[in-house]
Amino acid sequence: MKRNSAKVLFVLPTALWILVFTAYPLGYLFYLSFHRFRFGRIIGFAGFRNFERFFTDDNVFNSVIVTLIIISVAIATEVFLGLILAWLVDKPLRMNKFFRVIFSLPLFATPVAVAFLFITIYYEEGGPMNSILGLFGIPPVPWLSNPFWAKMSVAVVDIWQWTPFCFIVFLAGFQSIPQELYEAAYLDTKSRWQILKSVSFPLILPIFTIVLILRIMEAIKIFDIPAVLTIGGPGRATEVYSLFTYRTGLKYFNLGYASAMGVVLLLVEIPLIMFIVKRLRKVIS
């Protein structure tokens, strides 16, 4: 194979694949969003009616707020815990290998299964969560029956699942800091706090930003956990955006309206994607 033809041939199949299965659907998404879809088929042109409904629909507003609350609580906790745990494990402790393995277990645990398990764990009439909290004198928490706590419950499952991701990335970051730097700093100040402030922290900062961005990107997709754990309830207290879109499209079969929701999400995400791309460019080159 000649270099020039190889250059094209190696990339073309994949590029075509992506174009066919992503770009084409995206185009079709716009088409659908301007149509009425009922009784299992497109029943007419809708103009901007789907979008009009979108911006006056209280359910949409609710799902946006709910999503923002859940993911900001989850992400803040995950990043914080991940950082602390990574910092702790990155120590000459005898059992740090063991902890590393245990902490990574939740990473790929099937989210649907985890969410279902947590229904039993949160069970309010004597389930393990409240029993354990009870040992410390904490009164029973209405995990799934209270609208506020239901949001927290979803966040907690997300935290359980995703803290390991932050943990292993931060750990990789800590481990890439050369030992000599620490030693030099130790000779310099002897103050542990100073070392943390002047060596660890600046070096981990870029990784911190990356983790944060990646988490935001992934967290916006949140669907599995509320879809199973609370089915969006009580009321709409945990009806996140993806769940609401899915419901409208594939439970009520109003695909026109659901497509309009997709279009808006896409438009909102574009600045975020551009931002991520900008950061990535820096990292890559």
Binding site: P147, P234, G235, A237
Partner: peptide
């Protein structure tokens, strides 16, 4: 179903 649940859990 959804809005009733909101009423009985005090959200509305």
């Amino acid at each position: 179903d959804v809005h009733l649940s909101e009423a009985v859990t005090g959200q509305k």
